[in-house]
Design a protein around this nucleic acid. Structure first.
Length: 321
DNA sequence: CTCCAGGGATGAT
DNA sequence: ATCATCCATGGA
């Protein structure tokens, strides 16, 4: 078992793994047990040092990077976090979220693993998504040993594409089984080349993702943010929608989902996805600080009009966005 | 436009 | 212990 130690200033492992962007890491005593792609790993953080124990990889492995590079890349330790946080808008809630989420990074997940997991996430809460992820891994993934623990890699698209319906159903997927299977077939057949999509513009990538079964606007934005490094992508789930409507736009009760998204795109800027993740984690974990009663937060709200914005007239064309 | 699907965790009573 | 609520997509 190999051990890698990496300096990780400005990084909070626990917040990063528990902020709803990744669902397979399990807490064990001092660290987290899981896998980076196909490589089993146990990660613990002591102050500014990240200690990663690696289990056996099966040979030949698809992973070619040196192990320290693999860790740095996966946890995005190269993201300029200070600059990213400095680019957030300056308002009371954003500042509170930035302080609360210090060290939280948007990690770089394998594309298929991320896409498949978020297809399974629709209409589910974090605890459920974790169960589904674990079930898919133990049933269809490959078993790996690490120390005296066992982890399972995420099943490749080909494996899911050929899985039986009952097998998938037993993973608690419900109606999502059909979508996951259909998307797995598109991916494994080569009809949809997730790696090649890296070259697409944000708009084109979003369009391609939304064309996949089980992928709508929210999930497409999650995959863009967590697997394609599109740090501007701004997923709007119920938590973020509540934050937007209650805190940022309390006077504009009639805004459509499309208008909320357009506001967020312009207001939160080039690292909007990071801002979203900070607001999301802050809202979920420190929810007592956020009033459920919209009237109380009105004084802190940002005026949409002050940004020089008008509701878009061209917003009537696309349904999946 | 509305309604519905499937289901375990979570929180309220 | 029972009950309501949470959740995003797509099809009727």
């Amino acid at each position: 078992m190999k051990l890698v130690e990496i300096s990780s200033p400005d990084f909070d492992l626990e917040k990063t793994l528990n902020s709803g962007q990744v669902f397979h890491w399990e807490k064990i005593d001092n660290g987290f047990l899981g896998a980076i792609g196909d490589v089993p790993a146990c990660v613990q953080q002591e102050d500014h040092i990240l200690k990663v124990h690696f289990g056996e990889t099966r040979k030949p492995t698809r992973e070619t990077r040196p192990l320290p590079r693999l860790v740095t890349h996966y946890f995005a330790l190269d993201h300029p976090l200070a600059e990213i946080c400095a680019s957030f808008p300056d308002d009371a809630l954003m500042n509170a979220a930035r302080d609360f989420c210090r060290g939280l990074r948007i990690i770089r997940q394998p594309k298929w693993e991320c896409l498949a997991t978020f297809i399974c996430s629709s209409m589910k809460q974090v605890a459920h998504i974790r169960q589904i992820s674990a079930a898919l891994r133990t049933r269809f993934g490959e078993r790996r040993e690490i120390g005296n623990h066992v982890v399972y890699t995420f099943p490749h698209a080909q494996h899911i594409a050929h899985a039986s319906k009952t097998g998938l159903r037993e993973c608690k997927l419900g109606y999502r089984a059909k979508n996951l299977c259909a998307t797995a077939q598109l991916v494994s057949s080569g009809e949809c080349n997730l790696e090649a999509w890296s070259a697409l513009s944000d708009a084109e990538l979003r369009e391609r993702l939304c064309a996949l079964p089980g992928v709508g606007a929210k999930i497409a934005n999650c995959v863009m943010l967590f697997a394609y490094e599109r740090l501007r992508a701004f997923p709007i789930d119920v938590w973020i929608e509540r934050v937007l409507r209650q805190h940022y736009l309390p006077r504009r009760k009639k805004m459509t989902a499309q208008q909320l998204w357009e506001f967020s795109e312009s207001y939160f800027g080039e690292h909007g996805g990071y801002a979203q993740q900070y607001l999301f984690h802050h809202a979920r974990v420190a929810k007592s600080l956020i009033s459920r009663d919209s009237s109380e937060s009105a004084k802190d709200a940002v005026s949409y009009r002050s940004l020089g914005h008008r509701p878009s007239k061209s917003s009537s064309r696309v349904s999946k966005r």
